[in-house]
Amino acid sequence: MARWEPNAPQRLADAALELFAERGYENTTVLDIAQRAGLAKSTFFRHFQDKREVLFGENALAGPLVAAIAAAPAEAAPLDAVACGFDALARDVFTPARRAFTVRRRAVIDAHPDLQEREALKGVSLTASMTRAMADRGLPDLVARVTAELGALALRIAYRRWSDSGNTDEFGALARRALGEVQAAALTVEGGPGRFPRP
């Protein structure tokens, strides 16, 4: 196989997941991954810092999510703007063609605490991006932050459901359902108007 074929990052990621499943994450080297992908070790390091980054790479979620939030109608409620972002992720990132890869990726991450920590940090960064996107829509800082936190929670719920090996639902439907559940839970916590002491 030629060493300079296109789509090297995806080939490396696919090879890494195959090897992680066969040998385990700890027993797989960068050289193993490059050889399985039919690429040079130097090509690996052009795209990734280390084997952990094969599972994370660039944050492919932030771009489409933030752009769709910004493009949501001006009159859209904050969580409706988030829903527009989720629709973009369903269309551009969490596609049916990517689901098998995502299921395997999640299995590797779930088995390693250090990878779980890296995944959590990625989530913090995404939440910060959503907060800025909501603030750019003119929301007060606290409202922007709460909206982003609720959106991030819904996104984590939808991702877990979508990447479950027995799931057959599309990501968009799962994300909107999770967003509705999070919104309903927030209203339940509030307990109705007048329940909190007012300053």
Rank of each mutant, 00 (worst) to 15 (best):
M1W: 14
A2M: 12
R3Q: 10
R3F: 13
E5T: 14
E5V: 07
N7K: 02
P9A: 00
R11M: 14
L12G: 00
D14S: 06
D14Y: 10
A16D: 04
L17K: 10
L17D: 06
E18S: 09
E18W: 02
F20V: 09
E22S: 14
R23T: 13
E26K: 08
N27I: 07
T28R: 07
T28G: 05
V30I: 15
D32L: 07
I33C: 05
A37W: 13
G38E: 04
L39Q: 02
L39D: 05
K41F: 04
T43K: 11
F44Y: 11
H47G: 06
Q49I: 02
K51M: 06
R52C: 13
R52D: 15
V54Q: 07
V54I: 05
V54K: 04
L55I: 03
F56G: 04
F56A: 09
E58D: 11
E58I: 04
L61R: 09
L61P: 05
L61K: 04
A62I: 12
L65W: 06
L65V: 00
A68W: 03
A70L: 11
A70P: 11
A70S: 05
A74K: 13
L79N: 08
D80Y: 03
V82R: 02
V82A: 00
A83I: 00
G85H: 00
G85D: 00
F86E: 00
F86H: 01
D87Q: 05
D87R: 11
L89P: 01
L89G: 01
A90G: 09
A90R: 11
D92C: 06
T95V: 03
A97Y: 12
A97P: 00
A97W: 08
R98C: 03
R99C: 01
A100D: 08
F101T: 13
F101V: 12
V103K: 02
R104Y: 10
R105Y: 11
R106K: 15
R106G: 06
A107I: 00
V108D: 04
I109N: 14
D110F: 03
A111V: 09
D114A: 12
L115R: 08
L115F: 08
Q116W: 07
E117Y: 14
E117A: 12
R118C: 12
E119T: 15
A120H: 09
K122L: 10
K122T: 09
K122G: 14
K122R: 15
G123F: 01
S125F: 14
A128V: 05
S129A: 15
A135Y: 01
P140L: 01
L142Y: 14
L142E: 13
L142P: 10
V146T: 04
L150N: 11
G151F: 00
A152H: 13
A152K: 07
A152T: 15
I157C: 10
R161A: 07
R161L: 03
W162G: 02
W162P: 05
D164N: 09
G166F: 03
N167V: 02
N167Q: 01
R176E: 03
R177L: 13
A178W: 02
L179Y: 01
G180K: 05
E181K: 14
A185R: 08
A185Q: 15
T188P: 11
V189S: 11
E190K: 13
E190N: 15
G192Q: 10
G194I: 04
R198Y: 06
P199N: 06
P199K: 04
P199A: 05
